[in-house]
Write a protein that binds this DNA or RNA. Structure first.
Lengths: 363, 363
DNA sequence: CGCCCGGATGTTACCGGTAACATCCCCTTG
DNA sequence: CAAGGGGATGTTACCGGTAACATCCGGGCG
């Protein structure tokens, strides 16, 4: 906008390699530049750069000196082109606003970095078919060796056929274990522990605030809750369905507070549990004296600090991330997709102060 | 591990392009493959792929058909090599566990995607010089056109000289505005609003729970707090320094609860504010009747749901992310680094129920 | 003394896509 | 009817790095 070139078409031949003023591209030093300065061939520079065999001490020093002088940095595109791999793993996800996703991503990034792999983020703006489709399409053009997909399996089902068939894929929390390599938190066992804990305290049954229907994780937590109650021969109260938000938990809590038989609630995540706490508080139902509440996730620095501190199911997101990277690397290095299957990461109940035996006389 | 090739050295010439069994690399279809099937030159395929001028309808259809049949996807490494750009922006950060970081990252990813840029994550494992240095070194080898750095400025200062000089950089929340392009939340104004709000309610002064000394953001919140008090001619209580965690807020809260003159506290983030709430609760100091508390961040779905709902300073992380991408693209497209300088994203106080006038008679 | 060997270094070709240029062919026009 | 023009397509070269092969040289040994 400032000078005379309205188009990019012609700024092409006018940069002598000595002038560092280059306007657009190519201000970067290449091996050839280093080689010229050091008075060797670029192959020798390559050998020095990669610590390869047999370069005489004096030559090596000259090359290193030239590299330092010019500030040489290898061009990863060229290397990727040559080797046919990018040393990069793509991560597709909907949102980073959930603690689980961002912690999983962090673990993925850390472990990938340790293996010399970079992480490329492929955000999906909205949970619509179009956007997901778009992400998968873009995926094909991206410089990634494998992809880790973090999203709801139910939505995935409808579009999974568009996944490029020759891309290595690891899915998180999905029911596609028959087709893909899946890393999964043991939702069922976590839910089981939560419900069992409440029954052990003496509650006759446990109410449930479920996550949204389209979430696979929510569905499994609900299924496990139901199963425990049925195995124990307890009454199964009607499911109240929220949308993961504190608001929905609050709204449902206001209703549950009016159910005198409700002495224990298992919420499908911490956020909704928090809404419950507030609703019960406003309705004069004391937690845990009158009602016990269990959450799911163990949001760090938060779940422990509510009033009262929340009993909840702890998820090991770091471990999930670690196994994702492991799975992706196995596929990349193994060359072919390993047997589809699901890896379960254990969960554990953290008992704090939002649970207690039911009020005496309420039997 | 299964078959006969122990080394990768020889699986080279043995894959006829028709057999999709290729063990290691090159199972990907190239333009040449498409060209062969369509019976045209690869240049024509390129023209079709890029919607370039003048390819006859019938030829185009043939090529598109061949692409579909073979599942062609362009190789971005080759394109990057040719064009000298990667259409990728790197993001360096310490941790995703803070809400601010992950929300900023999400906004960055979303806006970058809208502009056709991908995001590569460069995690820094620990806040040590070595690790930061490592990240910057690795950065040079990464396929990125620009870098967004999200971390504490004070640490940065000591290592900034290692930033490759020819890389476009945007920093978040840093005091390096004299050397780099910086996008910053208006910490000072947010802190000012918080403190002023408490003074307006009638509190004689405001105590402060600061963030860690090495954080630039924390330092500015503290400075603004002090400045407002001094301008108003109020007494400046001693600073209590936490480490952002709820635990540290709790510990400090136990001490402050014993200060009878403490009727209003400005915490440098929501987490520590939550610790305060708990400590005050345990010590029998009612919030907000006896003590008012203001936080900073407005952690979504959480700050509003504490007991009582937290009055706090809302940060617009989405806007920060948007401007980061904007700044990075400006540099990439402008070819040269724009004038260093700081862009301020406004903050705003959200008044909820953790603040109230001081208890009567406490004057 | 000449041959061979091996270490050090240079040369060539290739990865996949595309700009620039070359070619070909058909159709228009003087 | 020949020349010219332009649209469609092919050919060449290059981006930067590196494997494979070629070359060069000095020294040990028969």
């Amino acid at each position: 906008m400032s000078s005379s070139t309205p188009d990019a078409g012609e700024s092409r031949h006018d940069d002598p390699p000595t002038a560092p003023v280059g306007r657009r591209r190519k201000q970067r030093v290449s091996m050839a530049d280093v080689a010229r300065l050091a008075g060797v061939s670029s192959q020798t520079v390559s050998r020095v750069a990669n610590g390869h065999s047999s370069v005489v001490e004096s030559t090596r020093d000259q090359v290193l000196e030239a590299m330092r002088t010019l500030g040489y940095r290898p061009n990863s595109a060229a290397r990727a082109l040559k080797y046919g791999e990018f040393r990069t793993i793509g991560v597709i996800l909907f949102s980073l606003s959930s603690t689980g996703n961002s912690r999983t991503l962090e673990a993925i990034a850390t472990h990938a970095a340790a293996e010399g792999y970079a992480i490329t983020l492929i955000p999906v703006a909205a949970r619509t078919q179009d956007h997901v489709q778009g992400a998968f399409t873009r995926l094909g053009e991206l410089a990634v060796d494998a992809v880790i997909v973090i999203m709801e399996a139910h939505l995935l089902d409808t579009v999974s056929f568009t996944l490029p068939p020759d891309v290595h894929v690891v899915m998180v929390d999905s029911d596609a274990g028959d087709r893909y390599s899946v890393v999964d938190t043991d939702q069922a066992d976590g839910a089981r522990q939560a419900v069992q804990h409440l029954l052990n305290l003496g509650h006759r049954t446990v109410w449930h605030v479920a996550g949204p229907a389209e979430s696979f994780a929510a569905e499994r937590r609900t299924a496990a809750w139901r199963k425990v109650l049925e195995s124990a021969g307890r009454e199964v109260p009607p499911v109240r369905r929220g949308d993961w938000s504190s608001e929905s938990g609050y709204r449902i809590g206001l209703e549950l507070a009016d159910e005198p038989s409700c002495t224990a609630v298992f919420a499908a995540n911490d956020q909704m549990a928090v809404g419950l706490l507030r609703a019960f508080g406003e309705k004069g139902r004391r937690v845990p004296a009158d009602v016990s509440v269990v959450g799911f996730d163990d949001v760090p620095g938060t779940a422990a600090w509510f009033v009262p501190p929340l009993t909840t199911v702890h998820q090991d997101f770091a471990e999930v991330g670690r196994r994702c990277v492991q799975g992706a690397l196995d596929q990349i290095r193994g060359g072919r997709h390993p047997a589809p299957g699901t890896t379960l990461v254990p969960t554990r109940l953290v008992v704090r102060q939002s649970t207690a035996p039911p009020p005496t006389g309420s039997e």
